[in-house]
Write a protein that binds this DNA or RNA. Structure first.
Lengths: 197, 197
DNA sequence: CGCAAGTACGTACTACGAGTATGTAAATGG
DNA sequence: CCATTTACATACTCGTAGTACGTACTTGCG
């Protein structure tokens, strides 16, 4: 088998394309990156891109989805040690803030995502990853008691909105590491609105 | 004076350009609108646009700023009858949600703004309009008592983030008018985190 | 008043990037 | 082993942002 099977070739190429695209989009923003640029970085040409993806926005959608998956993984990892739903939400929120200190994450998740894919498409993807985690944590907190009952999905989204803004506040801070505590405290206070602890 | 003065000609042209651009950007989104399109709608050509604005993003910046001003006016109007800072913030938040039920407002303020201008530039503009109002209301509420002391500017931004998400939830609701009450109640609960009422 | 300088555009062009059409070598299935 | 499909590359078209330049009108100044 000197020549590899098509399935793995295809998979390898798409993976490299998404990888290269994530780097470029994250660094320069969606509008400033050309298809040829991404293709060249992945060692192929534009033809390969249009063979695997319907267009530039589809390529971005793949990048966005992967970023959400990776972000969700981080949240799960950081919140895994939580004793109850309430603490899980807190830890997850803090993990989100830390993850968003990476400019590439902010560019893709917060800035370009909604504008490129539209809010509806973004919401669908988010609802399966980051928002789903927040919502699940809130529901768990409700069952654990100490949290006022309510629409957990709605709360999850409002929280995510506040968290994105919080991330951007940290982003332009001169010393993000030091401001982290203050911002996290404000986020915790917001969470307190739901009656936790 | 058959021929008007240059100053007013210039002002009239720029005003018509911003007006036309606001319509197109609000309806179709920034990326889907061409300069020629806007120019034609304003009864001029591309040359006029590039004479008055540095580029497409500068034109959008003008549109965005105007939208913020108009939004701020609405918030002031709706919150003017408030008895205290706490109620002013509540009324302002609700007014924001109602204003964002206009798709054009959402497209410009929430979707395209950050991606086109960048979050820093957007924040600077917002901080002089909508965010400033929220912050001022929170400060007033602190003085009136009943609100825990804290960084009002930071809180204002987090709230705005949550409000933008809330607006988008309402946007895709089948019956936004009916869901308004539920979303507004959740927003009020978030405000309650600061100890109001 | 008359003229030089500036202003407010219009027109014609360039540059670049998204998307398409088509070609081709390799792989796969029968 | 041959027909078909897959995975690309290459060469194009087309739309659009931005530029260069021309021109009519206006304004300030002697």
């Amino acid at each position: 088998m000197a020549r590899r099977r098509q399935a793995e070739r295809s998979q390898a190429t798409t993976a490299e394309l998404v990888e290269a695209a994530a780097k470029s989009f994250g660094r320069d923003g969606y509008a400033a990156v050309s298809i040829d640029e991404v293709a060249a970085a992945a060692g192929v040409t534009k033809g390969a891109v249009y063979h695997h993806f319907a267009g530039k926005t589809a390529l971005f959608a793949a990048v966005f989805t992967r970023a959400q998956e990776q972000l969700a993984e981080r949240l799960v990892a950081e919140a895994s040690g939580a004793r109850d739903g309430w603490e899980a939400v807190r830890l997850g929120a803090h993990a989100f803030l830390r993850a968003c200190m990476d400019p590439a994450v902010r560019q893709i998740i917060v800035l370009d995502g909604p504008a490129v894919l539209g809010r509806d498409a973004v919401r669908e993807i988010e609802d399966e990853h980051v928002t789903a985690l927040l919502t699940a944590g809130l529901r768990r907190a409700e069952r654990d008691g100490g949290l006022r009952p309510g629409d957990a999905a709605l709360r999850g989204r409002l929280l995510l909105g506040a968290l994105c803004e919080a991330a951007l506040v940290l982003a332009r801070s001169a010393e993000p590491e030091r401001e982290f505590a203050a911002v996290a405290a404000e986020v915790d206070m917001l969470l307190g609105a739901y009656g936790g602890e």
